[in-house]
Design a protein around this nucleic acid. Structure first.
Length: 119
RNA sequence: UCGACCGGCACCGGAACCUGAGGAAAGUCCGGACUCCACAGAGCAGGACGCUGGGUAACGCCCAGGCGGAGCGAUCCGACGGACAGUGCAACAGAGAGUAGACUGCUAGGUCAAGGGGCGAGCUCGGACCGACGGUCCGGGUCCGGCUCGGGGCCAGCGAGGGUGAAACGGUGAGGUAAGAGCUCACCAGUGGCCCGGGUGACCGGGCCAGCUAGGAAAACCCCGUCCGGAGCAAGACCAAAUAGGUGGGAGAUGAGGCUGCUCGCUGAUCCCACGGGUGGGUCGCUUGAGCCGCCGGGCAACCGGCGGCCCAGAUAGAUGAGUAUCACUGGAUGCCCGGGCGGCGACGUCCGUGGCAUCGAGCACAGAAUCCGGCUUACCGGGUGCUCGACGCC
RNA sequence: UCCGGGGUGGUGUAAGUGGCAGCACAGCAGACUUUGGAUCUGUUAGUUCAGGUUCGAGUCCUGGCCCCGGAG
């Protein structure tokens, strides 16, 4: 796997922006995650990660968050259109491997249509 | 440190380097520090704790000791004050469950009725014997307010034995008695008091006397002693921004609200509910602390003192991710070597392993600081050090 | 950070002051029926866990686990 280049991942910091994105965006579900995407006219793609406490303890939640951020660092440069993404972890993601998570998020982005496999 | 501007400062961006979670960071079960409420007050209620001495800022923690219990032992465990201050509790079984009780049972005596066995005496029937009135012997019947043995009911005495139960008002022996019983005595156990010795003390050892047994349970209420004011870093202080310091209802100087409940005391103007909105940036608190490491000294120890050195996370959408390779570690399998046991003259075979090397395929936990400490508890991987016990083998 | 409430068969629920853990549905077996349903009869299975107090604990005490809820 290639190193995560020079791409800097930006996260959505403000509560209101997260609420706006989850209210207006389109959502796609898979066993491990729920992805909510809102296409933005300009700027870099951004991500926010939600992990309910029900998923696991602090260690489990921290690991999922880090892995999702790393996946986004790898995939976001290949996005055709910039968008605000909210990734919500589901219960099953606690036991899933990194490879499974990677594949699922990639397919969710593809279902949304903003993922450009050619890039 | 570089870049956008010659330099400086601020900000932004990039790069390099440095630093960055735990023994439990966890559960949030105790105890403190800190901040605000009155520099934290009184009484009641309520709660916690409960052998002794020490440690500590404090504790429900730790150390040492006592007592009790478990174990062959090293060792481990113990909410370990009070049941003559009071009120309650003990299902079922059982005679009786609390200053208990009398089922079975034991018993001198009294009494009631009936009257059994034996002995004795009287009367009588039959038979036998003596020559005979008559007498004697044998067998039977009957009667007796003669003696004796035994039985029943009631009264009375008894608490030893049987049996019930988790628990039944000491144990053993002797005397004693109508039968028995701490009824009496000796010893033992236990209770209370006094004295002597040891110990700071819990307590231990010994002696004397008393009285003869005074049960369990306070993790039932309770009593006694000790301790506890409340809230919590979203505490609290400050800056900036935003909207309209909105509308409706209720309470309020005859005292709102606050100090957990009540009474006092203190404070002294807002508070509560619903509807509709706005903000939900930042700075401080925030990490130097009952801190860590080393040496020395005191103490059995927990711990304390002195000196020297060190700075070891401070985020706030919340820090360390993934893959591959290599190394280390752990235990497993296989092979070789080494050591030992057994069999054999021997080559060798076989078994064992706190041993060494190689190969293979595995494993690498529990878990993420959020104001900070001291504990407790729970989860779990590997390692180190010291002391000791038991078993087995060898000398 | 700080408060509450709760855990009983597979499910939903009972058991004043400690004294034999019940009930309904579901499950299983049997009967009735040509078969199934309904009905009847029988039966299995339980106190969240580990200790402690007590003669005896679902109940009392201590600690843990899990779930639900609340306040700022």
């Amino acid at each position: 796997m290639p190193p995560a280049s020079r791409f800097r991942l930006t996260t959505i910091k403000l509560r209101s922006e997260i609420d706006r994105a989850s209210r207006l965006g389109r959502s796609f579900a898979s066993p491990l995650f729920v992805l909510v995407c809102l296409v933005v006219p300009e700027g870099a793609p951004r991500v926010a990660i939600k992990i309910p406490r029900k998923v696991g303890g602090a260690v489990v939640r921290n690991r999922i968050r880090r892995q999702v951020k790393d996946i986004c660092r790898a995939l976001f440069p290949r996005l055709g259109t910039p968008c605000d993404c909210i990734v919500i972890a589901r219960m099953a993601s606690a036991g899933a491997s990194f490879r499974q998570k990677m594949e699922e998020i990639q397919s969710l982005l593809a279902r949304h249509g903003c993922f450009d496999p050619s890039r």
